[in-house]
Structures are given as C-alpha cells and as structure tokens.
Design a protein around this nucleic acid. Sequence first.
DNA 1: CGGTTAATTGAACGCATTCAACACGAGTGG
DNA 2: CCACTCGTGTTGAATGCGTTCAATTAACCG
Lengths: 219, 219
Amino acid sequence: MSLAYDLNDAPNGAAAPAAALTRVLDLLGARATYTRNEEIYAQEDDVERLFRVISGVVRTTRVTIDGRRQVGDFYYPGDLFGLETGPLHEFSAEALTECQVESVRHAAVRTFAGDIELDRAILDATRRELRRVQGHVMLLGKKGAREKVAAFLLGLAEHEQFGGVDLPMGRQDMADYLGLTIETVSRMLTQLQSDNVVQFPSSRRFRVTQRYALEAIAE
Amino acid sequence: MSLAYDLNDAPNGAAAPAAALTRVLDLLGARATYTRNEEIYAQEDDVERLFRVISGVVRTTRVTIDGRRQVGDFYYPGDLFGLETGPLHEFSAEALTECQVESVRHAAVRTFAGDIELDRAILDATRRELRRVQGHVMLLGKKGAREKVAAFLLGLAEHEQFGGVDLPMGRQDMADYLGLTIETVSRMLTQLQSDNVVQFPSSRRFRVTQRYALEAIAE
DNA sequence: CGGTTAATTGAACGCATTCAACACGAGTGG
DNA sequence: CCACTCGTGTTGAATGCGTTCAATTAACCG
C-alpha cells in the first residue's frame, strides 16, 4: 500500500494538470503555519478549501460517537488534502508535526473553471486519493497485525532519506491507522526488528535492512 | 455506512451534472448483459470504459497474490462503476446476479470535454465513490464482527422494498467485504435474528424488525 | 535532575478463526 | 415419491491472535 503520492510523479504522467493546480495555488493560495496537533479543519466543517502540504506532515482522523478513532491518512509535502466529497468534512485534519500549509477556496478555484486543465488536475488528485483509500481498505481487510505493520513501514520507506526513515507519527496514530492497538503495533515492531528486517536506532526512526523480506511479509 | 448511492440523489443536489452523464451514456453507451459470475472487467485490465448498472447487481473484487479476496463494493441500478484511478484496474468487476450494464469508452466521453457539466459529473461520481470507500475503511477499521454485519444489513436496507430486503450476495461475498469469515458472518446473522433485530424468512432475504436497535449495534 | 509523556513488555482473557460435522434447498434421475 | 447429489449455509469445539489490563522502561523537556 502507499501512504503518499507526490504531485510531481503522477502515475499516468499527468504532470501538466498538476502544474495547473500548482499555478492556481501559487497565485491565489494563502499560506498558514500550524503547530503540532493544531487543527486545520474539523470533522463536520464545511468543505471550503483545497489544501496542500508545503512542509511537515498532516494527519486526517475521524472519531466515531463511541470514541473510537480512525486515522484516514498522512500527507506529506506536495500532497493535496481536503478534497472530500460532500458538503461537510468526514474527517478532520491536524498538523502531525509543525507544518506549513497552502490553501485556496474552492470558490476561487471555480472561477478558473473552464480551464480544462485545472478540472483535470482536481479529478486526478481525487482519483489518486481514491486509490490511496482503496489501498487502505486492502490493508485493513484481511491482513494480520504483522503484515499491516510491515506494509505501513514499507509505505513510509518511500520517503526514505539516506540514513533512515523517520516516523513523524506516534504509536497511537499508527495503531489507529492500521486498526490495531498501540501494544500490538509495538510488539510487531520489536518482532520485525528481532527478525532483522528493520532496525530502530530510536523509536521514531528506522531503517529497512532487508527490503525484500519486508515486502514478503507485507505481501 | 452506505453501499450504494443513486445517481439521482446526489447529496449536494448536483442533479444537473449527473444528467450530463446520463445524456452521454444514453447517447453513446453500449448495453451488454452478463450472467451470474461473469466477468465484466478483470484486475489489471486497462481502464477504458465507464460503466453504469441498468439492472441486477455488480460486485468488484481484488485478489491478493496469496489468494485472499477483498470485495470492493456492490453496485446497484443507477450506480456508476469502473471509475478507477490509474491506467489499470485495481479491482475486477463481476455480475453478482444476472445483470444489464451500460458502458461508454472514456475516449468517447473525452470528445465531450469542454462540456464543463460533464467533467463535473465525473468528478462528482468519483467523489461519491471516494466517500463510499472511506465508509468502508471506517467499517473495517475498528469494528467488531457484530457491528460490521449490522452495518452491512443497514446499508442493504436502503434498497428495501416493502416486504423485506433481498441479499443478492452469498455469505462468502459478505465475509470478503467485511473482512470476516463465512462462519462468523453466519453466526452474527443468527445472533442478530435471535435478538429480534432482524428476521430471515430465508437465507437470502431479511427484514429489519427493529431499525433503531440495529443502528445502535452498527453505531 | 525530577516530572511527564510515550513506548515496551508481560500475563490473562476473549473474540474471531479454524477445522469439522451437519442441515437445508434446489435440481436430477430412478 | 424417494434417493442422491451438489452447493450453500449453519452449528459445534478447540485453537490462536490480538486485546486488555497492569507494570516497567525509555525518551523528552523543563
């Protein structure tokens, strides 16, 4: 599964429409900075703006009446978010880390309608989001804890810098993303480490030591 | 959660764009009839067409390398399907029941590009699909078997005719949709029945006897 | 350094799975 | 009409995986 797609490497080479969005955001977008855990928009808020991460990481979550939390996804620099379906947000968005976000009102974007390229860009972004969520369904559907955690780490490893990947989210966020508990996540992590598949110098940083094996576990 | 949205009751009153799609499908769409379990398109096939169910029910599924199956969703008359993201289908689509399907090549739709309304219609449909899949994530994420099955039945009850709802899918399909086994699904069904929340005159037909209670269980 | 939050580990429990047997219904043929 | 079969659904008993509850350790920050 995949946690994030960069705007710049659309799978079908749709770089041009993405560029159109970039253009509009650059032109009309307002930048804002959020501190750790600050809310960007709330569940049930009106859908008014389209967002893009400039720096830092954003997390979307949804809480059910009885208090259970589901993490929707994590968004990295370049990712669009807030492109939800209805008039109201199904998920809320919060700054996972200190982060900078650019946003533009849908209404403002709409004044650019007629710009086919722009419409395409939004459609593409929505499709990418759809694929992402479908991946999430596969992950949650019929996978064991070990596989889920392995898949999650693999997804993060996409953003690998040389010298290891860092985990901006805590265990609780991982658990709520994977449909597990923190304890299980923790156990699986230590287990994967003792199997020499990954290595954790610290609890928020890891390195894939056997990518192939990790992929095999994640399937 | 919701299993299906009708084209005619878009949540934001976007009836006009939907009409544009209807128009194009009526104009350029080809109809085909499929028999029970016949494949409409396969996983990894090129994404070439946009489909709409005329009659019967369609199921999308994805099979992992190791043979586990995940049901994506069930599509009812009026529903669009096949609006996937990439160049290749992530899921396959099969006729769950004998059914009639209308489809049109994306290329053909694209010759209508410039028609803003049409672009909007496809975007809206994709957004609706996105919401549907997000609902599926919530369902799979942190719910027990009982809740999952209750939620599933509630979703189906949307298509309730007077005199009960019918279950076009077998237990295995339900299980693969919910991330459970057939046995568990079966157990939960009998349990819900003995709690007098639903009633099964036959294994493929049910009636909600206490909607409020069922909703409470599904949360 | 203490104080606080986050992460790990252990042990007991419970829910869903697994494996197996049985029941039911529809269709077929004697 | 009964016997037989095949597919599908239900039920039972035992196992196992992930959870729960509790205690400990590690990381972070003043």
